[in-house]
Design a protein around this nucleic acid. Structure first.
Lengths: 150, 150
DNA sequence: CCTGAAAAGCTTAGGCC
DNA sequence: GGCCTAAGCTTTTCAGG
């Protein structure tokens, strides 16, 4: 558990990660010629990047709108100083609509990313968040549009 | 281009997507028995989910901290009413540290997610954002901790 | 229209240099 | 890092419901 915070990652590793960010299902034999390496060398690098914790996993990217989850929002949460940080996270993470919880230095205390079916659903989620711990206030930012890298 | 906003996705599709969210490199033959389908049926479903735009792609998940990008923040941006929405997005997206730009209804006008090497780097990014369009103010929320679904 | 089964070709895993 | 081989996976094709 005493691993270095920053792993040794050379330029080839960065190019490899860029290829996998573009398409996480690329095969080793697809990447090998692009990187100027043998197929086995690519596999060894990917294995090493997983072992050193640089690569934490692979996932599918889904268009939530096409699944009927068309409402996106960020809710800023402020709570009493006595509330442990973990409380808001553990409560929020049980709500399926909550995608991410960021604990923040200063004001607000946390930022909660939400994906909801509709506005009534969003309302329900916010109500639920307000019941967690000793929350003193929330402010919800409705997302109109988004641009995401890659 | 006149596709339905919400695609037909049955329960098996949802279970399939859950498996791929867990591990985007799962093989069809790994998923087939878990879904109670043949290998070919799984492939056909994945192909269909891509064609209908439900699956937009596959990607690798990387621990930015281990790559030396240890600072994460959200910057709220407020700008003059005359500034077109696209301006802030097109400017911000040219900054490599900017991970995502969310345009917001109300106040603030946008929320910019940033990954920076250190605080000096973050400062540079915020300065750059402030020079974009006619920005009237920014407020940066420093991320102390994060919880993300999956 | 949907599904499942089989075969060729390709990819991966692991040992070796 | 490269090369090799066995095992496993993907893709296509074909037949059935």
């Amino acid at each position: 558990m005493d691993e270095p915070r920053v792993a040794d990652v050379d330029d080839t590793d960065h190019r490899l990660l860029a290829l996998l960010r573009e398409d996480g299902r690329r095969t080793f034999s697809d990447m090998a010629p692009r990187l100027g390496l043998s197929v086995a060398a690519v596999k060894r690098r990917v294995d090493r990047l997983r072992e050193t914790g640089v690569i934490t996993g692979f996932t599918v990217q889904v268009d939530a709108t096409r699944l009927g989850w068309g409402v996106e929002a960020f809710t800023e949460v402020r709570y009493a100083g006595s509330t442990p940080v973990g409380d808001i996270v553990s409560t929020a993470s049980t709500v399926p609509e909550v995608q991410a919880v960021y604990t923040i230095a200063g004001d607000p205390d946390a930022l909660v990313q939400v994906r909801a079916r509709d506005l009534a659903d969003l309302q329900r989620v916010i109500d639920r968040l307000r019941r967690a711990g000793t929350i003193t206030g929330t402010k919800t930012l409705m997302v109109l549009g988004r641009w995401t890298r890659a």
